[in-house]
């Protein structure tokens, strides 16, 4: 692979052929198996898929936070501002973590340190990356807490995490993540652990702040409704691979992959649920240990063909940056070659 990277920054982040495997006793788990995508400045990109499809692992790989062992990034490049994150030494990597790329995790209940005051945790984040006094850092932290809508921030900042509700804690996480004006915010299912009424507030907050601070966002979710409201582009992941990539509007209007089609159909709708039956994709996601070289979705696909059982489909460009990996769209030549 060409190790030199072009000096164009139009893409904030470029993930190229990323492969993250987990070496377990049962075999090699190919959690992320050769995915590529890019993120432009100010863009909000959604990554959707079922549990275990590799969406969180993808984003932990970007931050190089994969627990190792057993996890290992075996191949690929993650180009951020012209440098490959995967090739950086530890001290330069720390300069990116929390400073240029920061993360908001799924469970705000456990993601904040229960033993330390919010003030300690926020000041520390700022002072790792900026050479300012504790007092200035505290002032900045309070300002960030106000920005995310924590009432009486001047007092609440000296509280411990357990004195906040789940939604408030997620706000604190967001404030902390954005306190160094990160260029990219990775939000890993930021609303999954929260009350439905709080979910919308948190998503709105992320949207508002990313616009204001011109932060690019990668939003990981299994909720297609969330994607529709927030993201310009969407990657659909299945069994460690991106099966479809498109602008959000296109994806909803013309889902190309049968899996995406199924996902969209499964979103419960008030106007269609009168006869009571909800749509679901039959079967289970495949075990990603020692996956054979076929289309991993074929056992659940209603349009399955013979070739799907034998070979992984090529990625087909449908135009208007809509890409899909499915034999249904393969050229006759590729079919013949296969």
């Amino acid at each position: 692979m060409n190790k030199k990277t072009p000096k164009s920054y139009e893409n904030m982040l470029e993930v190229k052929n990323l492969k993250t495997y987990f070496l377990t006793d049962a075999g090699i788990v190919k959690a992320v198996d050769g995915i590529s995508f890019s993120l432009r400045q100010g863009e909000t990109l959604g990554i959707v898929g079922e549990s275990g499809c590799g969406k969180s692992v993808t984003n932990l790989s970007i931050m190089r936070l994969i627990p190792s062992p057993p996890g290992k990034i075996v191949d690929g490049q993650i180009i951020f501002e012209g440098t490959d994150i995967l090739a950086l030494p530890e001290n330069e990597l720390r300069n990116i973590r929390g400073n240029k790329i920061s993360m908001v995790f799924q469970d705000p209940m456990t993601s904040l340190n229960p033993f330390l005051r919010i003030s300690t945790q926020m000041i520390e984040t700022i002072r790792i990356h900026q050479d300012i006094s504790k007092k200035e850092a505290l002032a900045k932290s309070i300002e960030m807490l106000k920005l995310v809508g924590i009432p009486a921030a001047e007092e609440r900042i000296f509280n411990y995490p357990h004195q906040f509700s789940g939604g408030m804690r997620q706000r604190v996480m967001i404030a902390m993540a954005l306190s160094c004006e990160a260029k990219i915010l990775i939000a890993d299912e930021p609303t999954t652990a929260l009350d439905v009424t709080i979910q919308a507030q948190i998503l709105e907050l992320i949207q508002k702040l990313s616009k204001k601070l011109n932060t690019s966002v990668i939003l990981i979710t299994h909720d297609l409704g969330v994607v529709a409201g927030m993201c310009e582009n969407v990657c659909v992941m299945y069994a460690g691979k991106i099966v479809e990539k498109a602008k959000t509007d296109d994806l909803y209007k013309q889902p190309a992959h049968p899996y995406t089609f199924g996902l969209i159909q499964s979103v419960p709708r008030l106007d269609k649920a009168k006869d009571g039956k909800l749509f679901s994709i039959e079967g289970q996601p495949p075990n990603v240990i020692d996956l054979p070289p076929c289309c991993p979705f074929h056992p659940r696909c209603h349009k399955v063909m013979d070739i799907c059982r034998n070979q992984y489909p090529p990625t087909v460009d449908l135009g208007n940056s809509h890409e899909v990996s499915c034999w249904l769209y393969a050229e006759h030549k590729e079919l013949a070659d296969a």
Binding site: L65, D107, S111, H129
Partner: peptide, 26 residues
């Protein structure tokens, strides 16, 4: 292995300060 240590790592902290500031107490 806990989530808050992962958060500390994601903030860009050194492993030594993670151990003494974040992991010690717990």
């Amino acid at each position: 292995r806990s989530d808050y240590i992962r958060t500390a790592k994601a903030k860009g902290m050194r492993s030594s300060s993670i151990i003494f500031k974040h992991a010690m107490k717990g």
